[in-house]
Design a protein around this nucleic acid. Structure first.
Length: 1117
RNA sequence: GGGCUUGUAGCUCAGGUGGUUAGAGCGCUACACUGAUAAUGUAGAGGUCCGUGGUUCGAGUCCACGCAGGCCCA
């Protein structure tokens, strides 16, 4: 006969190891997919991690979230393929390699070949793969590790090329510029990484200018003018005066308050009106001048009078046009107007920011968003260029300053008496023109090139872009169809970002990444975008034929430097070289829905079956990374979402809410956690403790608690079941006992169980694992263990193997088995063991793993809300009686005669009557008595039903409530009898109330000590009769004998003989009168009361001492 | 500076559409219970529900403005 496994001191880490071995041996993961062949697919995309660092505890979190829903959907019958993946390109790898080799970017191609360098990157990036694979297995994250997609593989890159070509053909790929830090001295752009080198930011003293931008006198702007000749100016401050000739807009803060001030220009003494932020007025005007009439000013006065005349918000000013400040070059589109910028502050300057789209990245962005052009001139090739050339000199079109360096890049002696920086010359010119309001030196930090030590310029540099703005509306529209968890990340963080979208800058000037497959002639007139290896090979043949390339090369690797060595030929026969850029690594990962199948070059069908994803999950920090690139590519390529449901999970912090870092030593090692507490407790804790999208404060003590409270309780419940089921040989071989023949508590727990099955299903369907975990946990701990098992213990260990006992076993078995299934997505290892321990004996399921099984069906007919309510009453009443016993110092073992419960209606009485037996046995009393209205002794309490009364009486609520509180017992009786009562609420007003407007409860039974909770009141009869007293002693004896049995290491089923020293009369009487009871409880075959006990043990029973001896039945061979 | 987010007991967290005694678990204290026993019950202590205003008869809940932490972006 098969037995249920029994465990002593279950080791949860070992459960993990054992189950993992079982899964491996029987290919359970593969079969969880293959057994669903032909079922509806549930498509999941794995966001590829990078294996160049070790995995952390937060990866356990992120992956648990992914895993839960894949397992859940498998339970629900879907087929869930999940291909693993590795993200292998990008800056972090390159920086790591540079650091290890002790080189900088400059050395690549010089002291180390690009080939060697990239080889090094390729090795480095997968360095920790085995650790990752190990964690993936140990934490129970099921994903196909044997056939992952790897972004550095040729096929993957080829797919990306094919996608880029599609975008290119649709006109979404273009070459433009972005504003980047640039060093004219070195003639090269600087990465933000280079800019963050220590010492790059230096204190410098610059000439700064508050310039005056004159408002145009057009109808649109007339609200800014008060009189005919008035000249109104915007004041804008800049620390880089050399950018002023390139100004095309001014930015204001939407919510910032601005004022118009009438005053005089301090250099020309002309009367002017200026607009600036209200908060900054005091920085530009001397308060001492406040109050001096404007008319009292004469040219040259030190104290310049001013008067604030009007106030506006930034929003009011948006759209106002002004005259170009330094009209050297004209724009191609309308410019010179006020726009709103989120970067504008009133920290310094005037609260109005000068915008030169070619020389600032904020400027560039805000201009692009508002369709403001940049000022450009044509270079010698007729290509557009900014007003400053790459050496840092003004172009010839800026006539007054043509050829001058905007900063000192030539090493001129700045201490020479006649040395004037360009910034100063500009200031002088503006002063003369009456366009400078204030010129002063200002000390601030400014980034410098780490090689030339000269100030950097923010300068437009060539870049390739994807024109995401062309599909902006569609991106927004389709985003609204995505189910975001939490919703706010989709509407807020992601939605707002889409609203302010700029084109996607693809270019990266690095070495280890996917090369941009575009070849161009030197003049940029002709170009080709390559979409496949085949096409490249064909083009190479053409190039060789045309003689621009020496010999055909074999294409073995699509990385640099190999692709750089390929020269193609244009239609007109010119050589074309590859644009040297790599593409943004986010394109790599965003392309995974296609490239993981080598689509569009092959596998069209597989792709179509697996697009879009039903579900993805990653950290919220991916919002503008993977979540965006997936979405953008799907919209541009397929006009579809890439994913239908997405969980953006939060961070894992240490227990104090600080970020974990190896440096601070507060990082938690996932392997250690899993090794110590087992994978299930770690997963369960992370999921149950806080919703995934909140940050998790990870406290190992919480894992301990989860292990003890949830897994410990569940395991205890199972152990209890296994212990007795093995004794009784219960294998669930019999037919199920019909519900109607089961006990009230059986039907109750089955009802609760079905409610749970439905709840967990709806939570998981809604992608809320936390609610699911908590619901399961509450059921196991509160309902199943602490109530059902506690109340029903005796049914398992007493009596014959009859239908009632069978019903108890079946009920408990069913609960445990269903729990195993419900918990299996979250605690896959323990649930597996539980399922198998049960199923190996009963053989009820043919599936040999819980992960091959199916989600339980909800038996709606088994859900009985009325029963659940009754049981809640029983629990409350029991708790009240316990509390009364406590107050009277009467222990539970002492039986009592009765409790009294006032009931105001028949329904309550019937409900309680149905659970009387449970209450009586739980709190050890003989009878439940009910007191209703007819007894005439109930004291009632009345309380206003605020919700109801508020709707009716509104403002008079307080008066009515006061009147209700004043009602006496007669009034309440009247209200109940007549179904209404008229109350005087003030001198002249009355209010008519119905019983629905109040809550009536019984408060007291005169002469009894009562306890109440909510509307329930219970009184306890504390009279202890002689018989009750004896029964109490009998129970005490049973307890002591049981302890003795245990101390003697007897097995539960061992029979004993008891010999008791006769002593005081009470004890003797108790033994005589309750002999049968004592014998039955203690499995005693005999109970002898003698005067002479040999080898006895002295036991304390109440105030008495009892000498007792027990011996086991001789074992009959 | 902007967007999003969090703030409830010592700790971790619950608290649909506003309703008058704000809950749970852990921890602490005391007392019980005991053939599930490394479990369990009862009771107690512990709260300016981050602050200030507002709406309302009534605000932990709605609105506004702040403060503090976090993430992303500048």
């Amino acid at each position: 006969m098969a037995k249920y496994n029994e465990y002593k001191n279950l080791n949860y880490a070992k459960v993990g190891d054992d189950v993992l071995a079982y899964w491996k041996e029987h290919n359970i993961f593969q079969r969880s997919v293959s057994t669903r062949e032909g079922h509806k697919p549930f498509v999941f995309y794995e966001g590829p991690p990078s294996a160049n660092g070790t995995p952390g505890i937060h990866h356990v979190m992120a992956r648990a979230v992914k895993d839960i829903f894949c397992r859940y959907k498998t339970l629900k019958g879907f087929q869930v393929n999940r291909k693993g993946g590795w993200d292998t390109h990008g800056l972090p790898v390159e920086l790591q390699v540079e650091k290890e080799l002790g080189i900088t970017k400059e050395d690549i191609g010089k002291t180390i070949t690009v080939e060697e360098y990239n080889q090094r990157c390729r090795e480095t990036v997968m360095r920790f793969k085995s650790q990752w694979d190990d964690l993936t297995e140990k934490m129970g994250y099921w994903v196909d590790l044997d056939n992952p997609y790897i972004t550095f593989e040729n096929e993957y890159i080829e797919s990306i090329w094919a996608l880029l070509k599609r975008l290119y053909d649709k006109g979404f790929l273009y070459k433009g510029y972005t504003i980047q830090p640039y060093s004219p001295g070195a003639g090269t752009g600087l990465s933000s990484h280079e800019l963050n080198q220590p010492g790059c930011y230096k204190m410098v003293k610059d000439t700064t200018i508050v310039a005056q931008f004159e408002v145009k006198k057009i109808t649109r702007n007339m609200f800014l003018f008060e009189y005919e000749e008035e000249q109104v100016f915007f004041l804008a401050w800049t620390t880089t005066p050399w950018t002023l000739p390139a100004n095309t807009a001014l930015a204001v803060g939407k919510g910032i308050k601005y004022v118009k001030v009438r005053t005089y220009n301090p250099y020309t003494y002309e009367p002017i009106s200026v607009i600036l932020a209200k908060d900054l007025v005091s920085r530009f005007f001397n308060p001492k001048a406040d109050g001096i009439p404007l008319t009292e000013y004469s040219s040259g006065d030190k104290l310049i009078p001013y008067k604030i005349v009007e106030e506006f918000t930034g929003a009011d000013l948006a759209g106002v046009e002004y005259h170009q400040l330094m009209p050297y070059v004209q724009p191609e589109k309308p410019a010179f107007r006020v726009v709103v910028g989120d970067f504008v502050t009133t920290e310094d300057g005037t609260g109005i920011v000068h915008i030169s789209p070619t020389f600032g990245s904020d400027d560039f962005r805000v201009a692009a968003q508002n369709d403001i052009p940049a000022l450009m001139v044509e270079d010698e090739n007729g290509k557009p260029m900014p007003l400053v050339d790459k050496q840092g000199r003004f172009v010839k079109e800026v006539t007054d300053f043509a050829g001058m360096y905007v900063k000192n890049y030539t090493g001129e002696d700045e201490s020479a008496p006649d040395y004037k920086p360009t910034d100063v010359l500009i200031a002088i010119k503006l002063k003369e023109e009456g366009r400078a309001f204030k010129v002063e030196k200002y000390e601030h930090t400014y980034p410098h090139c780490w090689r030339t030590d000269k100030p950097v310029l923010y300068y437009p540099l060539d870049s390739w872009f994807i024109k995401t703005t062309a599909v902006k509306d569609r991106l927004i529209e389709l985003n609204k169809t995505i189910n975001w968890k939490p919703e706010s990340t989709g509407t807020g963080r992601f939605g707002n970002w889409l609203e302010n979208l700029v084109d996607w800058n693809l270019s990266r000037s690095r070495y280890w990444g996917t090369p941009l497959p575009i070849w161009r002639t030197e003049d940029g007139e002709e170009e080709i975008c390559i979409g496949s290896i085949q096409q490249l090979s064909d083009e190479i043949d053409r190039a060789v034929d045309a003689g621009v390339m020496d010999a055909a090369v074999e294409i073995n690797d699509l990385h640099r430097p190999y692709v750089d060595n390929i020269v193609l030929v244009s239609h007109s026969g010119k050589p074309m070289h590859r644009e040297t850029d790599l593409i943004d690594v986010w394109f790599d990962s965003g392309a995974m829905p296609y490239a993981q199948w080598h689509y569009p070059l092959e596998n069209k069908e597989i792709f179509e079956q697996n697009f879009p994803a039903d579900y993805i999950a990653e950290g919220v920090d991916q919002t503008r990374g993977w979540f965006f690139t997936l979405h953008a590519l799907a919209v541009m390529l397929e006009d579809s979402v890439a994913y239908k449901n997405v969980i953006a999970n939060g961070l894992v912090l240490d227990k104090n809410g600080n970020k974990m870092s190896k440096r601070l030593g507060n990082a938690i090692d996932p392997f250690e956690m899993i090794g110590k507490y087992g994978p299930d407790a770690v997963r369960w804790y992370m999921i149950a403790n806080a919703p995934p999208w909140d940050n998790l404060k990870f406290n190992p003590e919480g894992v301990v608690e989860t292990q003890r409270r949830f897994f410990g309780t569940l395991q205890n419940t199972y152990s209890f079941f296994a212990l007795y089921a093995n004794l009784d040989n219960f294998t669930f071989a019999e037919d199920e006992v019909p519900l109607e023949r089961r006990t009230e508590s059986d039907r109750w727990i089955i009802s609760k169980l079905n409610t749970l099955v439905a709840d967990v299903d709806s939570y998981l369907e809604d992608y809320d694992p936390t609610r699911a975990a908590r619901a399961i946990q509450d059921f196991v701990v509160d309902d199943l263990s602490n109530w059902y098992v506690r109340l029903n213990r005796k049914r398992f260990w007493k009596g014959e193997y009859n239908e009632d006992k069978m019903a108890a076993y079946q009920t408990l078995y069913t609960c445990l088995e269903v729990i195993a299934k419900l918990a299996s997505p979250i605690a896959p290892f323990y649930a597996e063991q539980l399922y198998r321990d049960l199923n190996l004996v009963s053989g009820k399921h043919k599936e040999e793993s819980v992960h091959l099984a199916y989600y339980p069906e909800v038996e709606h007919s088994a859900i009985d809300k009325d029963l659940e309510e009754r049981m809640a009453l029983a629990q409350t009443i029991s708790s009240l009686v316990h509390s009364l016993r406590k107050k009277h110092f009467i222990k539970v073992r002492q039986p009592l005669q009765r409790i009294l419960i006032p009931v105001l209606n028949d329904r309550t009485r019937q409900q309680i009557q149905a659970v009387e037996d449970l209450i009586m046995s739980e709190v050890n009393i003989k009878h439940v008595e009910y007191i209703d209205d007819t007894s005439g002794i109930l004291v009632k309490k009345i309380k206003p039903n605020f919700k109801k009364l508020g709707q009716v009486f509104g403002p008079k609520m307080k008066l009515v409530a006061a009147a209700v509180q004043q009602m006496n017992q007669d009034d309440i009786a009247h209200l109940e009898r007549e179904g209404g009562i008229e109350l005087q609420i003030s001198d002249e007003e009355t209010a008519v109330l119905t019983p629905e407007d109040v809550e009536i409860s019984s408060e007291d039974i005169p002469g009894w000590l009562v306890a109440s909770e909510g509307r329930l009141t219970v009184a306890l009869d504390v009279t202890i009769t002689e018989e009750l007293k004896q029964e109490g002693i009998a129970r005490e004896l049973v307890n002591r004998i049981q302890n003795l049995r245990k101390d003697s290491n007897l097995e539960v089923q061992d029979k004993i003989h008891i010999v008791l020293q006769a002593s005081v009369q009470e004890v003797n009487a108790a033994v005589e009168n309750f002999r049968d009871y004592i014998q039955a409880e203690t499995q005693a075959l005999s109970l002898e009361l003698t005067d002479n006990v040999v080898d006895g043990t002295i036991l304390e029973v109440d105030d008495y001492q009892v000498n007792i001896h027990i011996r086991t039945e001789a074992i009959v061979a």
